[in-house]
């Protein structure tokens, strides 16, 4: 699917059964008790929709990273 890829880290081990609810996110558990969600969304609006769902579950948000940023043109 075309779109934008993001990695979202949240506190706690989120159950993999949330995958479908969270836009077919890949749910990975980390040893430090956090969860990394890898997800492809259509655009910024899609990303905000996902963040809204996480908010509505009361999941504490720790980090958000875009995975397809074009390389920076440093002068």
């Amino acid at each position: 699917m075309p779109g934008e890829r993001y990695e979202v880290r949240v506190a706690g081990h989120l159950d993999p059964c949330w995958s479908a609810w969270l836009g077919d996110a890949a749910v990975g558990h980390d040893a430090d008790g956090t969860t990394t969600l890898r997800v492809t969304v259509a655009d910024q609006a899609g990303l905000h929709g996902l963040l809204g769902r996480l908010r509505d579950l009361g999941v504490p948000l720790l980090a958000l990273q875009a995975l397809d940023l074009p390389p920076r043109d440093d002068p």
Binding site: G12, H13, L14, D15, W18, H29, G58, V59
Partner: peptide, 12 residues
């Protein structure tokens, strides 16, 4: 002692 997300653990 669980690392699971509170809501997941308890709702299950």
């Amino acid at each position: 002692g669980s690392n699971r997300f509170v809501l997941d653990y308890l709702a299950d």
